[in-house]
């Protein structure tokens, strides 16, 4: 079975269970705050990349505003925690809901647009979100950011070191990936893929494509918000700079390098591109060069990414030639 088809199931426990066990004992072996903090960041990016994969990978929508929803989640959690004193366990789902609501608000008017137009609208939303967070000082404290966000508490004990955060994000990743894998292997996931492959044919099969695209967008933005809430309670400080367009591109790069349209791809991409820059610190100023070369290498030699669905990059309308299956209308005959 190719890697891009892998979905964790009861039958293939021998693949994912040892991996999970290794991840559980990993921090007991390394005992390094630095390495654990990298692992925690990888865990956050796994959620961000996997959720972006729902729209960009499975449904074939071009969203370029993922960091905005990540930021909305982070700010929602930060504001609720510092002003209302809500705990992490409440801010986490609420951040997802607020980000998902913003996702729906963007999706409803814009998902009638396709390809490059949707990309432009989401980039615009990204910039607007940044400017609003920077200037709405009454709500976001603007350039000062929001400090002193309380850490999550488990059984009344606040997390202090990265060990606790590591297990928390590991649990969160397992839950998120479990939910996403159930979604993409269902009738709903098939509807996403059918829309990606041919929207007209999907409609003819009875799929209400507009509604399904909105759903895809809301799912992706909900989980971006969840990642944002974790980030806020982990960094314990949020500011608008963390959620700019370059952050969106970082997530998108992870998705492309890891591979779109599969469950494994985004996980590999997130881990690789979080760990790689850290692991190559000894290269000093050549670090960026090596990073760039790896990206170019992947695009040239493995355009579907490490574990993406083969052909998923070429056959997409706006990035490539308009092929026969992406024309809007049928010829008159």
């Amino acid at each position: 079975m190719p890697v891009y088809e892998f979905v964790p199931r009861r039958e293939n426990w021998y693949v994912w269970l040892p991996l999970l066990a290794a991840l559980v004992i990993f921090p007991l072996l390394v005992r390094s705050e630095y390495i654990l903090s990298i692992a925690v960041y990888a865990g956050i990016y796994i959620i961000l990349t996997s959720s972006l994969n729902i729209t960009n990978g499975y449904t074939g929508l071009f969203s370029f505003g993922h960091a905005a929803f990540y930021g909305i989640g982070a700010y929602t959690a930060a504001i609720l925690a510092t002003r209302l004193g809500l705990s992490f366990w409440l801010t986490l789902p609420l951040a997802g809901v607020v980000a998902g609501l913003f996702g729906a608000a963007i999706a409803l008017p814009t998902l009638r647009l396709t390809g490059i137009f949707l990309a432009l609208v989401t980039i615009g939303f990204q910039e607007i979100t940044f400017l609003v967070t920077l200037n709405w000082i009454g709500l976001t404290r603007g350039p000062m950011g929001i400090p002193a966000i309380p850490p999550p508490a488990i059984g009344g004990v606040a997390l202090s070191g990265n060990l606790g955060y590591y297990y928390l994000i590991l649990a969160l990743d397992v839950i998120v990936l479990g939910l996403l894998s159930r979604i993409v292997t269902s009738r709903v996931g098939r509807a996403f893929m059918a829309i990606r492959e041919d929207e007209l044919a999907a409609q003819s099969a009875g799929i209400p494509t507009f509604r399904v695209k909105v759903l895809s967008f809301v799912i992706a933005t909900f989980f971006a918000g969840i990642a944002g809430a974790f980030f806020a309670h982990h960094a314990r400080f949020v500011s608008a700079d963390s959620f700019r367009l370059d952050e969106t591109f970082a997530i998108l790069t992870m998705l492309i390098v890891g591979g779109m349209g599969s469950l494994v791809g985004p996980v590999l991409g997130a881990v690789l591109l979080v760990v790689l820059p850290e692991a190559s610190r000894f290269l000093a100023e050549y670090r960026g060069v090596v990073y760039g070369l790896i990206l170019i290498g992947v695009i040239l030699f493995r355009p579907e990414g490490l574990a993406g669905v083969p052909g998923i990059i070429q056959a997409r309308g706006a990035l490539s030639r308009v092929d026969e299956s992406s024309g809007a209308g049928e010829p008159v005959g």
């Binding site: 044919a201 349209g261 083969p310 052909g311 056959a315 299956s325 010829p331």
Partner: peptide, 18 residues
């Protein structure tokens, strides 16, 4: 459709399920 509109990166079975 006149020019077939299949789901290129979905399996034969998945077409039937759709």
């Amino acid at each position: 459709f006149q020019t077939s509109r299949i789901f290129r990166r979905m399996t034969v079975l998945e077409h039937l399920l759709v």
